[in-house]
Design a binder for these strands. Structure first.
Length: 567
RNA sequence: CGGGGUGUAGCGCAGAGGGUAGCGCGCAUGGUUUGGGACCAUGAGGUCGGAGGUUCAAAUCCUCUCACCCCGACCA
């Protein structure tokens, strides 16, 4: 490809709206263009990268035994109502009506459609196991699209679904995918961390995420340097800081004028926060819930939602809490009878807590559970933090950030049961098919690759997903010798099937070098009068500072070898 | 949805206090240049996000609206 003919221009200045590195570089390199919030076009260079990623994924899916198929974006809303997941997705689901006023939605994922499809094609255990996948556009009306391609409303996902007859089969499918995912990310030049995850709106039990570790990541990961424990904060467990055991003392009321927050209580009464109990109020599916947790620990809303088994969860407003009879600033579970109380298990580690007295400007000392109050539900609903103990080995936990590029789930039979996808076992008895689902966001993977591979000059594409392998960069094109040599090398490389971006523009060296760096093509081949004197060209890897001379003779074969070694 | 911010040429920006829009980059033409974003000359390009209002006069003041970005609750 000749740069002079290439659609898409590089830009010197960073577009103002872009804050994330990958977003900035993709825009500056002319690889994407924004159409609306969270909606982008790919220009030729960006699209080449995209297709390379797509091919790597396809190869690995096929190798793992996946069969590719294609399902529609447009789906009847009814299908979603059957599994109840229309509610789980809520406003994230793009819905529309057809001319007959039938309700449709744009698929945010395809468990429903594929399960329905499988129901019609699978009757017997002999038809299983199955691994079916597609690479297709998904629509999710994200509350807040952000960071270029990292979080968008229209995106491409590879989604594979596994169908098995038993748990063992599911585990095997899961392991196959886990391995295939490792292969994919490695081949794309990414370092990922496998973390335990919450399964969210998709539902199901066990699930893992593949995180690209980078500061700009949206997700916080809690991990252990000692034993490889790693989990999304949403899911992460920890050994909560222990409090010295004490003999329970009698309840004692203290005046605490103007004291409301845990911070103030702790300061006013000179007790550590871990010696206080915090009351937090949530509205879970429309009902007020009273949450009790040790004062030094934050509530993890994902865990809370799971513990409650609710769909919608939000913090209650102060007005809602007061209406329910709560004394703001001095609330505690003591004497509360008509509100559901859920407590974090941290309240059992410790004694003689300070808690609200449910009277204005008053707290209790020496509150003890279960002596002084009742709890309807006790669970781990705490946000794990760096510094706390690893749940597996007890060492100190660390925290990093990452971008979730892949997510795998053991779904179980939730959807197959709802949609009646059954198989007959060897004894003639019907059972719901056991499912798993496995997703990779291609656009996000592309962006994450840049987040992990760039410098101040621009992108540094890993060879496997680079839009072109070679940036052919002649200097002084007005010099006939250079022009001839450049054309000849270009033709030769093309003939050898090498992917070459030929900068045939009559631009200054600085412009060309800067564009080459910005675009991130792995190998730069410079042809100049200087090097031609010794019948050689200059080779520079994008990832390295120094260049080296290489004889013009047999250049194609040499470059081919070099490229092969860089994969 | 809550909070914060921005909309002026393809990109980055300027334009206090009303007088009909400017700079840099980019683009076009010509010339001189060429190893890390060259220089000179000439030129094209804007219903100032949109609607309404105030005014002799609005990018500028008022009202409403839309879009986009950032921080939080969601997820590939």
């Amino acid at each position: 490809m000749r740069v002079s003919k290439l659609f898409g221009k590089t830009q010197r200045e960073t577009p103002a709206e872009a804050e994330t590195v990958s977003h900035q570089l993709l825009l500056r390199a002319g690889m994407i263009h924004q159409v609306a919030a969270g909606v982008y076009s790919y220009l030729p260079l960006g699209w080449r990268v995209f297709k390379k990623i797509e091919n790597i994924i396809r190869e690995e899916m096929d190798k793992a035994g996946g069969q590719e198929l294609m399902m529609p974006v447009l789906q009847p809303l009814e299908l979603w109502q059957e599994t109840g997941r229309d509610l789980a997705f809520g406003k994230g689901l793009f819905t529309l009506s057809d001319r007959k006023d039938r309700k449709l939605c744009l698929g945010p994922t395809h468990e429903e459609v594929i399960t329905q499809l499988v129901r019609y094609n699978v009757q017997s255990y002999r038809d299983l196991p199955l691994l079916l996948y597609q690479i297709q556009t998904k629509f999710r009306d994200e509350p807040r699209p952000r960071a270029g391609l990292i979080r968008v409303r229209e995106f491409t996902m590879k989604d594979l679904y596994s169908f098995d007859t038993d748990e063992d089969g599911l585990n095997q499918s899961y392991d196959k995918m886990l391995q295939a995912y490792q292969n994919i990310f490695t081949r794309c030049g990414l370092h990922t961390l496998l973390v335990e995850a919450d399964s969210g709106a998709i539902g199901g039990k066990e699930s893992h995420e593949f995180m690209v570790i980078t500061e700009s990541g949206e997700d916080e990961i809690i991990h252990c340097a000692h034993c490889r424990y790693a989990a999304n904060v949403d899911k992460a467990e920890s050994i909560k800081g222990k409090v010295e055991p004490e003999e329970p003392l009698p309840l004692e009321e203290v005046a605490t004028p103007g004291v409301g927050t845990i911070e103030q209580v702790s300061n006013f009464l000179k007790v550590p926060k871990s010696h206080t109990l915090k009351a937090v109020f949530y509205i879970a599916d429309g009902k007020l819930v009273f949450v009790v947790i040790r004062g030094d620990i934050e509530v993890n809303e994902v865990k809370l939602r799971n513990a409650l088994g609710c769909v919608e969860l939000r913090l209650a407003t102060e007005a809602e809490a007061i209406e329910a009879g709560v004394v703001a600033g001095s609330a505690s579970a003591i004497g509360i009878s008509d509100i559901k109380i859920i407590a974090d298990d941290s309240i059992t580690s410790g004694a003689n807590f300070v808690a609200g007295a449910n009277k204005p400007d008053t707290h209790f000392r020496n509150v003890n559970y279960p002596r002084d109050f009742r709890v309807d539900l006790m669970a781990d609903i705490a946000q794990a933090r760096a510094g706390e103990g690893c749940p597996q080995c007890g060492s100190k936990l660390l925290s990093t950030r990452g971008i979730e590029v892949g997510h795998i789930f053991k779904l179980g039979t939730f959807i197959s049961e709802k949609l009646g996808a059954l198989f007959i076992d060897p004894n003639g008895a019907p059972h719901p098919i056991i499912m798993g689902c496995y997703g990779i966001g291609l656009d996000r993977l592309l962006a994450a690759a840049i987040e992990q591979n760039h410098d101040a000059q621009g992108i540094i594409w890993p060879m496997s997903i680079a839009p072109y392998h070679i940036y052919l960069c002649p200097l002084h094109l007005e010099n006939p010798e250079v022009a001839t040599a450049a054309e000849k090398v270009y033709a030769e490389l093309e003939a050898q099937g090498l992917e070459v971006l030929f900068d045939d523009r009559k631009e200054s060296p600085g412009v060309k070098f800067n564009d080459a760096d910005l675009l991130g093509i792995p190998i730069r081949v410079t042809i100049s009068p200087r090097a031609l004197e010794t019948d050689s060209v200059e080779i520079k890897k994008r990832s390295e500072k120094e260049s080296e001379l290489m004889p013009l003779e047999g250049i194609a074969a040499r470059l081919k070898e070099l490229i092969k070694n860089l994969f």
